[in-house]
Computed example of a mutant assay.
Amino acid sequence: MSNIKMILVMILFLGCTTSHAQKVIVGAERTSEYFPLLENQRIAVFSNHTGLVGDKHLVDFLLENNFDVIGIFAPEHGFRGTADAGEHVANSVDEKTGLPIFSLYGGNKEGIDAKILNGFDVLLVDIQDVGVRFYTYYITMVKLMDVCALNDKKMIILDRPNPNGHYVDGPILDMKHKSGVGWLPIPVVHGMTLGELANMVNGEGWLPDGRKCDLEVITCDNYAHQTLYTVPVPPSPNLPNMKSIYLYPSTCYFEATPVSLGRGTSKPFQVYGHPNMKGYDFSFTPRSMPGAKNPPQLNKKCYGVDLSDIPNEKIFEEGIDLSYVIDAYNNLNMGNHFFRPFFEKLIGVDYVREMIIQGKPAEEIEAMWIDDVEKFKKQRRPYLLYEE
């Protein structure tokens, strides 16, 4: 480890120790800040199972306090967070409250109809993101910002910490690769909360035609970017714990290859392997399970690597680590057949695939985006709501 990296890791863990002295108060818990804004308003909520106020869901909490909630907008994985990645989620009704759930990941691809739009005045956002460009919750939020801008609706974001908020890494998305897993010109790991990112969307004119959303952010208390925040509930089925969340920016690229990254096991995003990989003692077999009904390499014994014992401080030191993808690429010896077109949508640029095929080491490839990281840190600074 270089001296600079060692100092950064030490600072990070000192910050972690300090942060435990005061509990982080998420935006949804700061009721004195947003309850007055909801008086006499018809409220729609964009949330899922992570939108908790203590041990109660935000929707239940609002209804208990006699607010007029008219419906729920749900992201990928659905309102209860149980659907597979990319699975079509239909409109439905919440069994507990009887409120309509409007799916924004499959149920309303043609847009939100006028009847729904005319039903609410304020859109309240409360959802746990993980701060990675290909994690889709922020994309849904940005699309809803544009809906609000077009229809003179106010958006209030009840902010939550970013569990990967302590660093920035990866190339800025080349917008020719814009897709449902990459929507904004930001690095893979942007280090911002949803509230900060929404401010940046407005400030940088990233909505179509430069539209602005009427936006208010209810910030967290006792949170800074170097706070190592542990999410209280898994944000989606295949990010079951902090190790998966920390490794996610380095292992998600296997989604664009034949290699399993552990969907259908107890360690999604913490292992990688393939039936034809040679020279490994470790093995696993993906099975069908809730949240991974048909995982890659289903019921096939895969040989590869278990990353789950890597200390968190080493993951933080390395940031995005392409050595895992390079290892599997070299082992399988498939050439360009190893990669699917989806790879560029995830990594966001053309040169990474090209350099891997050329045999370049991970360190050389990762050095290519250093300027992107520094550029973005400077660009995002006016929109930050918490100490770096």
Rank of each mutant, 00 (worst) to 15 (best):
S32H: 12
I43L: 03
I356S: 03
L215K: 06
V24Q: 04
P36H: 08
I139S: 14
K243Y: 00
V168P: 07
D55P: 00
Y167A: 11
T285E: 10
T18K: 12
K300L: 14
M1I: 00
H225C: 14
P208E: 10
H190P: 05
Q22R: 14
A74F: 07
A21R: 15
R80C: 11
M334S: 02
N241P: 06
Y329K: 02
S103L: 08
E374Y: 13
K154A: 06
D221E: 15
E364S: 11
G279F: 11
A74Y: 05
I186V: 15
L346R: 05
P36Q: 10
G262R: 09
P290N: 10
I245S: 09
F376A: 05
P341W: 05
P290T: 10
E363A: 14
R381Q: 15
H166R: 14
L346T: 09
E110H: 11
G279T: 08
E87A: 15
D174S: 04
F254E: 02
K109Q: 14
P208K: 10
K5H: 12
F343L: 06
E110G: 13
K5W: 09
K377M: 14
I356P: 00
N331L: 03
N241K: 06
G165K: 09
L184A: 12
F73Q: 03
L8D: 14
L332R: 06
N40Q: 14
I156P: 06
T97A: 09
H177M: 01
R263F: 06
H225R: 15
N222M: 11
G291P: 06
I25M: 12
M242L: 13
F339D: 04
T136Q: 09
V9G: 02
P240E: 12
T230W: 13
P290S: 10
G86R: 00
E110P: 00
E64C: 02
D113K: 12
L228E: 01
G131V: 11
E344D: 15
K178N: 00
